[in-house]
């Protein structure tokens, strides 16, 4: 649609601008202010310069949390994206089964995040949880409260359970836009299943897949509630991701300076990712 140039449209955007400025710009300015100062409470601040940033950039704790978060994001992407594509390819294309599948698959997406945590906290327990009980009954020693690897497995399975459906739904949205005639033509040409996927389905899904990968990466990069409820960041620090670490520093210990410095570094990374996301999407839309 051809849009007309009209700067009066700013008046329509003004309410959003005021509201989001209040709830985003003021807090961010405060974070910047805190990040260069030290405080002993009562809103008395001392200039600290770049001390907190230096401390942060040289702290193992921060880099470990960052590394953990990146490893986590890559693992869940490596599982969720292929699995999501596979399930989307096997979804029914028409008939009564379509809405039923959509509704049932979307169910985990709409569960409050802390309840997702609660569900898996219970489900994985080896005394009262179905999953934990039967895994142990199979002879595998599984206890996510004490064993870091088991904790990781639990958090990853939980995330796959929670979010794979999003990849499925996005891929499915891309797949249903392919006209039936394309498949018929491919059949008549004798195209293999792989060729159909590679030359018809994958190109059609490219855009939604990009959205899915970027969304999943960003959401997993700021994951907080689910692992917090299940493991509380433990055992030890083994599942302490960036957000959990930040909340510990900011609200647990109320270390304003270090927390603010960490927030800023974190936010800058997210800003870069958002820019990639936005650029990819707008360029895609422009090319079409």
């Amino acid at each position: 649609m051809e849009k007309t140039w009209n700067n009066k449209a700013w008046f329509l955007v003004l309410p959003v601008l005021v509201l989001v400025a209040f709830s985003a710009v003021i807090p961010l300015m405060t974070v910047v202010n805190y990040s260069v100062q030290d405080t002993f409470g009562n809103n008395v601040f001392f200039w600290a310069g770049t001390e907190w940033f230096e401390e942060l950039l040289h702290s193992d704790r921060f880099w470990e949390a960052m590394l953990r978060n990146l490893v986590f994001s890559f693992i869940i992407l490596a599982i969720e994206v292929p699995l999501g594509i596979f399930i989307a390819l096997n979804m029914p294309k028409k008939g009564w089964a379509v809405p039923v599948c959509l509704v049932l698959m979307a169910l985990p997406l709409l569960i409050p995040w802390n309840v997702v945590g609660t569900i898996w906290q219970v489900f994985g327990r080896n005394d009262i949880g179905l999953f934990g009980y039967y895994v142990n009954a199979l002879g595998i020693n599984y206890n996510y409260v004490q064993d870091p690897i088991d904790a990781w497995v639990t958090v990853i399975i939980m995330d796959v359970w929670h979010w794979t459906s999003l990849v499925v739904l996005l891929c499915y949205a891309g797949l249903v836009s392919i006209p039936d005639a394309f498949y018929q033509a491919a059949k008549i040409d004798g195209a293999s299943r792989w060729a159909v996927f590679r030359y018809i389905q994958l190109p059609k899904m490219q855009r939604v897949l990009l959205i899915a990968v970027l969304l999943r990466f960003m959401d997993s990069f700021m994951i907080y509630t689910e692992p917090f409820v299940v493991t509380g960041g433990g055992p030890g620090n083994s599942t302490t991701f960036l957000s959990i670490d930040l909340v510990k520093t900011a609200l647990g210990q109320f270390d304003l300076g270090p927390a603010a410095a960490m927030s800023l570094v974190y936010f800058l990374i997210i800003l870069l990712l958002s820019w990639v996301f936005y650029t990819v999407m707008t360029n895609y839309d422009a090319e079409r």
Binding site: I26, M29, T30, V32, N33, V36, N43, W47
Partner: peptide
């Protein structure tokens, strides 16, 4: 506004 902890350098930065 004391909770916002403004300082001259950060003020210059935002300006």
């Amino acid at each position: 506004l004391s909770w916002m902890a403004w300082t001259l350098p950060t003020a210059i930065f935002f300006i």
